[in-house]
Design a protein around this nucleic acid. Structure first.
Lengths: 213, 213
DNA sequence: CCCCATTGGAGAGTTCCACTATCCAATGAT
DNA sequence: ATCATTGGATAGTGGAACTCTCCAATGGGG
């Protein structure tokens, strides 16, 4: 199909598609003549993924390009490839090392991991974006005076563990590596708003159950 | 304290504080003279909350102002006040009614709510931002061809329900209404990255458990 | 008492980013 | 033959979140 058809089928303006091509988010189509190119279903699918990453996942264009490049990179093994893709995803701001709360937060996280036995995270994991993001989140909550005690964290961590099991099960339903990596990215980026929507609905439901209305 | 001290203690530039004052995110200080104003601890706390909402929660300035106004509004009862604050929080894009996937997604959500018995959400809840956000998320996943079956959704919804119970328990530890509303906002905005960080760490942990390394 | 650094206020300017509009030459359907 | 279309390149647009520049009014140190 031509660029204009790609545009119609995806609902994305041709100008925007050209922009994505320029930015390397979308591989160039197969050149038919000096002035025309042919796109296929793979382009359409990739384009939809790009839109989802940018619009739903709010990834900056540069980050989306990086993530996609990891999905495409066949030179790495699955574990590395998966890690590379996930670690380049956006995470909250890094912990502010100046702030005194950061030290307390780091210690709290340390104790948490110890308690629930997430060994990985302690050894190589203190470099993981997720780990730093967690420290930063806890520090912010402490600074604002919100409770963030060990029991609460452990409880929620346990629930997130169950969520993660579901996530990995779902990933395993895919046979090929690139599909698995893409699924992992989708799991991190696209299922996140879904989970958070479910959480807010659950809050509304539970709130209605407790206080009526 | 003066504006400059407020700036030092919060780590926010004076120019930015002035901007927030102008935008109504921060109440004006008490005027001492024609050219000077006095700020107190409440201003400092509010400023930190504003920064957290904007930087951690990624709220647009206008949205933050709206949310804060609901926190401050003493004219409403708790339930309404809480709802008003939470419903003005950002949620994903609204469902695209043009797209055929939206209808399927709406039906899937309908069936889900039926199955797990969240009555609230079906009656008044189809107007809730969380509900629309869920429909939109499911529609996106369907369009991209990712699995989103009833079993998966029900499973995750159950887990989110447990998370919500924790959330509400925490809210109840606060005695006064404005504190509860602020806690609810914090729960929706600030604990969200914390939960998602835990989820990603759990994924890393579970992944390591299954595939080694 | 005087002077000049500081303060708060107001408006314009800057930066970044995701697009989007404009051109242009080559093409290909009619 | 012709004229709308295509792909590519370049410059422009609009929104958001600051940030800079002035300015008049202090008010503390000498």
């Amino acid at each position: 199909m031509r660029l204009s058809e790609l545009s119609e089928r995806s609902g994305v303006k041709t100008a925007t598609i050209k922009y994505y091509l320029r930015e390397g988010l979308l591989p160039p189509g197969q050149r038919i003549t000096a002035t025309q190119a042919e796109y296929d279903e793979a382009h359409l699918r990739r384009l939809r993924l790009v839109r989802a990453l940018i619009q739903v996942g709010r990834l900056p264009v540069a980050t989306a390009r990086e993530v996609l490049s990891h999905i495409d990179d066949a030179s790495l093994g699955r574990t590395i490839r998966l890690g590379a893709a996930l670690w380049s995803l956006p995470h909250g701001p890094d912990p502010d090392e100046e702030a005194p709360e950061t030290a307390a937060a780091r210690e709290a996280v340390e104790r948490l991991l110890d308690r629930i036995g997430w060994a990985t995270s302690q050894e190589i994991g203190s470099l993981s974006p997720a780990h730093r993001s967690l420290v930063s989140s806890v520090a912010t909550l402490i600074r604002l005076g919100y409770p963030c005690d060990a029991d609460y964290l452990a409880e929620q961590a346990g629930l997130m563990r169950q969520v993660a099991v579901q996530d990995l099960d779902m990933m395993e339903t895919y046979p090929t590596e690139p599909e698995q990596v893409e699924m992992a990215v989708a799991s991190a980026v696209l299922y996140e708003p879904l989970l958070m929507a479910l959480r807010r609905m659950a809050q509304e439901e539970e709130s209605a159950r407790r206080y009526g209305l």
